[in-house]
Every structure is written in structure tokens, then in C-alpha cells.
Design a protein around this nucleic acid. Sequence first.
DNA 1: CTGTTAGCGCGTTCAA
DNA 2: TTGAACGCGCTAACAG
Lengths: 354, 354
Amino acid sequence: MTATLADVAARAQVSPATVSRVLNGNYPVAAATRERVLRAVDELDYVLNGPASSLAAATSDLVGILVNDIADPFFGIMAGAAQSEIGGERGAREKLAVVCNTGGSPERELTYLTLLQRQRAAAVILTGGALEDPEHAAAVAAKLGRLAEAGTRVVLCGRPPVSWSVEGSGSGGGPVAATLTFDNRGGSQRLTEHLLALGHRRIGYIAGPEERTTTRHRLEGHRAALATAGVAPGPVVHGSYDRRSGYDATLELLRRDQELTAVVAANDTVALGACAALRDRGLAVPGDVSVAGFDDLPFSMDAVPALTTVRLPLYEAGARAGRLAMGKEPVPPGGIATVHGELMVRGSTGRARA
Amino acid sequence: MTATLADVAARAQVSPATVSRVLNGNYPVAAATRERVLRAVDELDYVLNGPASSLAAATSDLVGILVNDIADPFFGIMAGAAQSEIGGERGAREKLAVVCNTGGSPERELTYLTLLQRQRAAAVILTGGALEDPEHAAAVAAKLGRLAEAGTRVVLCGRPPVSWSVEGSGSGGGPVAATLTFDNRGGSQRLTEHLLALGHRRIGYIAGPEERTTTRHRLEGHRAALATAGVAPGPVVHGSYDRRSGYDATLELLRRDQELTAVVAANDTVALGACAALRDRGLAVPGDVSVAGFDDLPFSMDAVPALTTVRLPLYEAGARAGRLAMGKEPVPPGGIATVHGELMVRGSTGRARA
DNA sequence: CTGTTAGCGCGTTCAA
DNA sequence: TTGAACGCGCTAACAG
């Protein structure tokens, strides 16, 4: 049988309460007593019963990190960074930082939130773009409200603020403790401006999945740049955030406009697919067609040619979200901070061909 | 305040026990009663208290998936696959599949195992190579033993079987319910044979971190192929599993042997770094030097030239590990199944230059 | 500084 | 098919 607190107490000849106190380290305990207790713990291979502890204390040490696609380094980097800030909490109660993969499915997102609510999670971090379906957005907002009520800290990372219908009194920022939102629109706009400056006038755009905030914002930035320059928008194709999608979409773009001189992709992975498609078509990058991505994932630098893209400080943002979730860092004014991207000009973009 | 089982019972005018029964669906309950209870649950926005439930039932619905590096798709793909098999359990008790990022640190690995033991996890999946340090291996084996004793199913995926000192009676396979091990040695051997067949005789090798099973097995396969062919081993450099490491190691290899005609890398990411280094040195791939990787991650196909590598069925293996952890699939004979890799010959390897 | 006393919210006997 | 009673293992008052 597994040893319990009482067993340890008996062996150390103290009361269960004392054992609890040395384990949690929240109360003063005589050094000698502590010593004895720790020895007993060791001898019995005692491990705290998490559920019992959580039940009694009405809090748990679970922290959930929701990601859309765990196989995508975009999320892996953020999640890993957040986790490293949460796990390392020395001295205090060890938190169990845990990542949940929704696969982009709205149902699974809600399921995971419910499961975390069940566990009375200490905090929840939602990463990446959100679905724009109003019904689902409302369901998530409601869920987050209930989590917050129960004392769970909710942090958003790389996701726009939740629109919170102010139905109650003016409690402030709704259920979300802090939001780190990415400036997808601005980054995308600067990227397209870069292409325009290189003389490109016929630019195809490979957008992400429809109904997603990230997709829309990046597309809006692109269009804003075109509009400002008085350039007519080129063809747009939607797809998922993977390489295959970029490949197929590029062929479709070429079908729609043979004269394209540049392709802007929803992200780096898609951009790589685009490069592959162009090569297979016998088109040189950037000689015939320039290609640009977004995010600046590690592999983008190694592509041939290296990818022009917008660098998002994913690690830093994830780490900050982790600290915010742990209450280790002050919440930004208004609860919202915008994280900006940096244009990285590399070999995949060049002057437009005549 | 959050609603409790008792609140629901009061509203539905039944006993708490009955509510528990409809929620868990393990006992017969009259349809009309169930209906009333479910309505009450809905009206009160009731969510089961996980800790209380786990305490009473002495089991939890948490399943832990340990990975070495969550930002690496190698692990992301396996973890995502496992999670998808675990999450979708319809009808039964919803499991919370959760991934824990050890970052390759032995301490964090043990910490996470303890945390999962605390939570009385239903199952634990350990993915990827293990550290070969005997002390740490023993500590992990002991931990797994305690987990198994407490009823946690332990599954290994992409990791060699734990050597289990048979100290007790012949209980069989030790604490591990099932092991899916990758045939790193065989795959590596076939890869090197491929290079030998192309006429390469001076082959550099970029190994992974020292003291890791994956590193050793892949290196052994490589050496076995050389020995069989009677070819002298070339230079070997160790590094981490990232692109930078591949870049630096390649420069070092060239320093040690100017006449190298091929470089074998610990994995695809490292291979990409190697390609970059060669290019920067003015060497063509595969014209001057052939390059090969391992794993066949999605981006490897898109590299220029596309990477010759060994394809590991990561998704399938992860999914199978997930099913094994859930007891949805029969354990392989002896508790151990070997997953083989497939040699993928692509553009990055060619005939050795004269 | 330490022991005693109550529950935390739920699952699971036992009866009915 | 349902209800009553007990206890899971621990923390948090309150004494001492």
C-alpha cells in the first residue's frame, strides 16, 4: 500500500498537521522536527496525494497550456517557454505545467477547458489565434468567466483580447488576467510594403484557415499596404497552416495569375511549400518569384534561399505568459500588451522581374 | 460559489448518490430520474470536482506524456498522436492527456514523474531517447516501479526497454506495461550502407548528445555498416539535436578531414545545419559532399536538395502508445515491439566524387 | 512551535 | 432502482 500522511506522522512521532506543515513549508517548524519528518518521508517513499491535497486546500497545482497544434514549432516554442517559467518555481509549491493539444478543434478546446476546470487548475494559458465563430467565442468567453470565478488565472498569448460583454458591474477586464496579443496586422503590412518597395505589383496571398483571427489580421495588414500604395489586390487562396497547403495554394495562385512576381504566405511552413511548388514549376526564387513567410521559425533561416519573414518573439512571449500566469510579473496596463514583429529581409525576396 | 454534487441533488430532488451514479453512468438509473438530474446539472453549470472525485475513487483521469523537447516536431508529432487517441474516449470517463516538457533534463524528468505520481495519473507515456547515466536510469526505473504499483500504466515510446533488475518474484515485464522501441541501429546501418554503395569511403558523423540511447544506437549502426564493409571510420563529433549544432559540427568535421565526401547527421534538423555549413564553405550538396539525416520530419522533403533520411513512423507509434496507455490495444508479445525505419533516398546523397 | 478537530466533495458500500 | 452513512488523505482553523 501507498504510504499516507498519517503513516509518516506515526513514524516521525508527530501529528499529521506537522507533517503537512513541513511539506508545504508555510508554517514555522522546529529544525529538529522537520529533520525527523523528512527522514520518515524518505524512508517511506512517501508522495503527497495530489487530489486529497487539492480537495482540502481548494486549489490545485495544475497549470494548463492550450495549443492549436503541438507538432508545429510555433506552438511548441511558446509552450516550452511558458512551461519553463512555471516548472522552475523553487521552494514554493511545485506546479505541474501541462500542454493540451486542441488540434484546432473548437470542441476539444472547450473539452480541455472543462477538464481543467474540473481539476480546479491554478491557471490556464490559451495560445495562438482564436476561431471567429461568434457562438464558439461566446462559449469560450463563458467558460473563461467560470474559470476566473473559481480562481483560475487566465492568460492569453498570441491571441486577441476576448470581447467581454459587460453584463455585471464594472469589474474591469473581464475574466482574463492578462493578454499578450501579436501585432499580426502591422507585421504583415510592413512585409508587403517591403515587397512593394522591391517593385512587386502582382502579389499572390496564401491565407491561413478561414474564420481565424490570425488569418484575418495578417490578410488585413497585407491589404492595407496594397491600398495605401494604390496597388490592386492579387489573388488570395485559403488553406491550412501546413506545407502541403502552401504547395497546392501556390499552384492555384499561378493558375489565377500567370504574371505573379511575389507570393506572401500565411506562415513560414506554408512559405516553404510555396517555394517547393515554384521550383517544381521551374520558377526561380527570388529570380522569377519572391516568397515571404511569417513567424521566423528556426528552420526559416536555413531554407534555400533563406526566407524573408516577420520575426515574432515566440519564446519571450511564451515565457512572459508563463510568468503572468504565475503572478510573477505585473499585469500590463489595461491587462493587454501588444507584441510586435520584426521584418527579417533575407534571400527569398528580391526585385520584381520586368 | 461553485455548485457541488449536493446542490445538484437538492435541485433534482434526489440523493447525492444518485447524481453520482448518473454522472458516472456505471449504475442503472431510471430514465426519468436521469433526465431530472441532467437538467439540474445544466441549470447549475455544475462541473465535477476532479480532486474530490479522484480522492474518493482513488484514481484520476490524468495521463502524462513526457517529451524531451516540445519545440521539436519529432516529439510534437508523437505527443499529438498519443493525445488524440486518449482524448477522444467517447462515453467513458474523459481523460486529460497532458504533455510535460523535460527539456532533456534528468531532474525535470524525475520531477514530472513525481508530480504525475502525486496526481495518481492513470497512465504515463515516456517518449524519445533516455539518458544512459546508470544512476539516473535506476532512479527512473524505481520511480516507474512505484507508479506501476499505484496502478499507473507506464508505456515507453521511442525508448529502449528499461532494464529491470528482477529483485522480486517473476512478475514478468517489470513496471512497464508496454514498450515501443525504435530500430535506430538498423535504420542507421542501412543509411550508411546506402552511402557506401554510392562509393563513399570518407564519411563524417555528427552524433547527438552523449550518454543518450538514441545517440549511441544510431552511431553503432553506422559503425557496424562501416565495419562490415571494411571501411575505416571517419571523424565523429557530438552535439545537441539542433541546427546550430549541425552547422558547427560540420565545420569541425571538415577541419579534421578535408577529403570528406559524406556527412551523416544525428537527425534531420542537424542535417539541415550541416547543409548550411557546407554551402557557406562553397561545397555543393551532393556534388561535393553528400548529406543524410534521420527521422524524416515533414520539412526534410522540402529542403534543397531534399534530404536522404530514415523515416520513422512517429505518428503511428505515438498513436499506438496512446492506445496502449488506454488499454485499448493488446500489449505486444513480451511487452516489447520494435518499430522499424524506412530508408528514404532523396537528392542530398549522390555518388562520391573522385 | 505543535496537537486536535473538522470538514473539503465525492464514490461506494450497505440496506431498503 | 434509490437513499443513508462512511471514509478517501489532506489542510486549516483553533487551541495549547
